[in-house]
Structures are given as structure tokens and as C-alpha cells.
Design a protein around this nucleic acid. Structure first.
Length: 255
DNA sequence: AATGAGTACAACCGCAAACAT
DNA sequence: AATGTTTGCGGTTGTACTCAT
């Protein structure tokens, strides 16, 4: 198919956002709401915001959106990121969902600049007491990538795909999604609130992520528990997939 | 003070799934 | 069902900043 990158569209700005542009975007979203990003660039242009929809979305999601936590990561967050990364690989959006107020982009950057490097150093110091090589930046990056991603048997490495919500039974979904839908009872066992509350949520049509990411959930569930739940989910997913030949293309631990 | 290397992070890009027609 | 468009994702790049020399 192929589309020209939005930055090449005539008359649109690129590069760092100015405070004025931020204000224009916030103002626009306050008036019209989130979403429909392709329309944003059309409609907001009249107000002086010359950015493509894609750029607007990114700016909003990663920087302007209310509730975004900025600043240093806590040791607990570090720990959770490391463990979730071990489980999920570079699925930053999924990891970000477990860290309230953090964006996938922020976590990805943090991993690439801090955590990944730290793990590499730890690993190196365990196996080799000499200092890591001080080669070129690219070489270091490459090494870091393979060390932290490549040889981890438990890491679910998949190509870039959109992360689906865990849809509820009865909703339309493809086969893979349906396979995971059957996991919801496991999750509901751990979810906050009584059975009645959960049933209510189900009946109201909220998906499982909605259930799990309520504010209450985050206040009550410790990082460790979140990690354990994810691990259980993935283990369960593996078993589920093995029993269903139709889903042979989806096996997190065999890819 | 100058400058080059390293670091941090915002922003861009291309791809693929989801959605609309 | 086929085709086009939009959205969301992970990988990568550009650049401002920091620090050592």
C-alpha cells in the first residue's frame, strides 16, 4: 500500500513541539475529545496547529495526556519492568499498562538507556569480571539487544503486532483472541472486588483490562502480585494453545 | 574555555491490525 | 470479499544536555 510519512505532508511542522502547539492541542482535545486523529490535523489547523494526526496522537499520548507520571522510576517500578520484560519481551504497551501513569515510549526509552544496560552489566559481571568492551555505540547497542532479548528462553518475542484487549465471551474476535478469552476465569480469581462486582463489570461490557486497571486495583495490588498474575496468564495461555491445534501459530514460549 | 564522547528522551518511521466503505 | 483509511505498536533517529579531558 504505502503512504507518505506524515512529516512529508506539505505545510506541516515537525520536530519538537512548542508550548503554543501544546496549548492548541490541549484546547482542541478539551473541546472535541480524544481520538479521530486524522481529523485533528484538519480541524486544528484552522486554529494554527500545523501537525499531522499521527504527531498529535503521539504528543498527546506520551506527554500531554492527564495523569502521566514524569520523573524518576521507583525501585519497585524498575523491578516490575525488568520482570515483565522477562515475561513479555519488548511489548512495551503491555508493560506500560501495568505501570500507571507511565507510557510505553517512556518505558521503552528507560529500558534502552538504563535497565537494559544495567542488566547487561550485571550479567557481564557474573560471567566475566572484566569490563565490558568499549566498542562503538552501535556495537554496544547490538550486544545489549542480544544479551537482553535473544537468549532468554522465557521471553515472548514476537514481531510487532497490535495488542488486543482480552475481549469478553460473546464478542467478535479472531481465533487467537478467542483462545485468550477463555483465560478470563483465571484472572477474575485474582481481580479486585467480589464476584458480584466482577459479574457486573462483565455484564456492563467492560473488558478485562478495564477490570484490572481500576484505580482501586492499583492501590490494592502489589507489584509482585501483578507479576505473578501475568506469569500465570502466560503459563495458562501456553497450555491453552497446546491443546488447540487450530492455534498452533500462537505459542508465546515457542516463538 | 573548547570540544568530543556519552547519555537521555522526544519525535519520527514503517509496519500491521482494526475498522470503514 | 476487496480495498482503502485509521490507529497503535516497536524500532530507530535526532538533538539537547552532561561530563570528562
Amino acid at each position: 500500500m504505502g503512504r507518505a510519512p506524515c512529516s512529508s505532508m506539505v505545510g506541516l511542522e515537525r520536530g519538537p513541539w512548542t508550548a503554543e502547539e501544546d496549548a492548541l492541542l490541549i484546547n482542541y482535545i478539551q473541546q472535541h475529545g480524544e481520538g479521530n486523529w486524522s481529523k485533528v490535523s484538519e480541524k486544528a489547523a484552522s486554529g494554527g496547529l500545523l501537525r499531522c494526526g499521527k504527531s498529535c496522537r503521539l504528543r498527546w499520548m506520551n506527554y500531554l495526556r492527564p495523569g502521566i507520571k514524569r520523573g524518576n522510576f521507583s525501585p519497585e517500578e524498575d523491578d516490575l519492568i525488568i520482570r515483565l520484560h522477562k515475561l513479555l519481551g519488548n511489548r512495551w504497551s503491555l508493560i506500560a499498562k501495568r505501570l500507571q501513569g507511565r507510557t510505553d515510549n517512556e518505558i521503552k526509552n528507560y529500558w534502552n538507556t538504563h535497565l537494559g544496560k544495567r542488566l547487561l552489566l550485571q550479567k557481564t559481571s557474573k560471567t566475566d569480571h572484566t569490563k565490558p568492551s568499549t566498542g562503538s555505540k552501535n556495537k554496544e547497542k547490538q550486544q545489549q539487544h542480544t544479551e537482553t532479548n535473544g537468549d532468554n528462553a522465557n521471553t515472548y518475542l514476537q514481531k510487532t503486532t497490535r495488542v488486543f484487549p482480552f475481549l469478553l465471551p460473546g464478542s467478535s474476535a479472531n481465533d487467537d483472541t478467542k483462545a485468550l478469552n477463555s483465560l478470563t476465569p483465571l484472572w477474575s480469581d485474582h481481580a479486585v472486588g467480589g464476584e458480584e462486582e466482577q459479574i457486573l463489570l462483565y455484564e456492563n461490557g467492560g473488558d478485562l483490562d478495564d477490570l484490572l486497571f481500576t484505580e482501586e486495583y492499583h492501590h490494592n495490588i502489589k507489584f509482585d502480585q501483578v507479576y505473578m498474575e501475568y506469569q500465570e496468564l502466560l503459563m495458562s495461555s501456553e497450555n491453552q494453545v497446546r491443546t488447540q491445534a487450530n492455534y498452533s501459530s500462537f505459542n508465546p514460549f515457542l516463538t
